[in-house]
């Protein structure tokens, strides 16, 4: 065909970039609406469960720890202490878990050329982050109504901490989502070796100071431990962390996200063919 000139067709124009960007925004928007429908459309209890689950967890662990000791950890009141551990942790764990199956369970969508593996993973991540923020806000107002004074010392730092946890979750999620079409048993492995151990070893139920220093030095390799310490230090007037390091946490979060994006880039073609 005479009118196809190879050199000009390879050149990238600004208008092409804008066009591609607007398509991507459209697709991600459509995917988020679709995910919301598939997750919550059939069961009216879906949204309720998103709120009930952390409430049950907080109640359970408050009951356990109130029975064990009388003092409040690091001077913080017990109920908000548990809440500001369990809910921020969800930014990591739930984002990671939801993302893992993103490619596999959306495989029919790749018949549409404008829907990419990147889009389906990111759409799930954004939806999960939005939901977790909603749940966080709702539960904070609930315990405020229950009579706890919610006075956030440095709100922006709390948000930044949640953002870092979400980045860790996105990084892990992008990595596992890209590997799982090739390795279907991955979900069991990540749940047994990552999800559950980190739930217990990330300081959801304790402060770094309350742990013997021989154990603490190992726990402090865990970036989530750092971030939860930092979030609580920023949230409560009663508590300042002497162990959490922003530098360490940021290095991990950025590294995890980069690893996730690079893994996805390397495997995305294989991932679709493997389906």
């Amino acid at each position: 065909m005479a009118n196809i000139d190879v050199s000009s067709s390879r050149k990238i124009h600004a208008s092409d970039v804008l066009e591609a960007l607007s398509t991507q925004v459209r697709v991600i928007h459509a995917l988020i609406l679709r995910e919301t429908k598939t997750r919550y459309g059939q069961h009216k209890l879906g949204f309720l469960w998103a709120i009930l689950e952390p409430i049950i967890m907080v109640a359970l662990f408050v009951a356990i720890f109130a029975g064990m000791r009388n003092d409040s950890p690091g001077g913080m009141p017990l109920v908000p202490f548990m809440l500001i551990g369990i809910v921020p942790f969800a930014f990591f764990r739930d984002v990671m878990n939801q993302l893992q199956g993103a490619i596999v369970s959306n495989k029919t969508l790749f018949a549409f050329p404008q829907v990419t593996t990147f889009d389906v993973i990111l759409a799930r991540g954004l939806l999960e982050i939005l939901i977790t923020f909603g749940v966080f806000g709702f539960l904070l107002s609930m315990i405020h109504l229950a009579g706890y004074s919610i006075n956030v010392q440095r709100p922006l730092e709390v948000l930044a901490g949640c953002g870092l946890l979400a980045m860790l979750g996105l990084g892990a999620g992008f990595t596992f989502a890209s590997i799982s079409p090739i390795l279907p048993s991955l979900r069991q492995i990540t749940s047994a070796f990552l999800g559950r151990p980190l739930f217990l070893a990330s300081g959801l139920f304790f402060t770094a100071d309350s742990i013997p220093s021989e154990i603490r030095q190992y726990l402090l390799y865990n970036p989530i431990m750092h971030i939860l310490e930092l979030i609580r230090g920023a949230f409560f007037f009663e508590f300042e962390t002497s162990h959490g390091s922003w530098h360490y946490a940021i290095a991990w979060s950025v590294g995890a996200l980069a690893t996730g994006l690079i893994t996805h880039q390397a495997l995305r073609k294989k991932a679709i063919v493997g389906l």
Binding site: S22, T23, R26, V27, H29, A30, L33, R34, K37, T38, G41, Q42, T108, L109, A111, F112, Q114, V115
Partner: peptide, 23 residues
């Protein structure tokens, strides 16, 4: 037979999805 559609969504919802991604 199936390409592109999610079987736990209705025809209406699937049609809307297609409309959205094609603008």
């Amino acid at each position: 037979y199936t390409g592109g559609f999610q079987s736990n969504l209705t025809a209406r919802e699937n049609a809307r999805f297609v409309a959205r991604i094609y603008g």
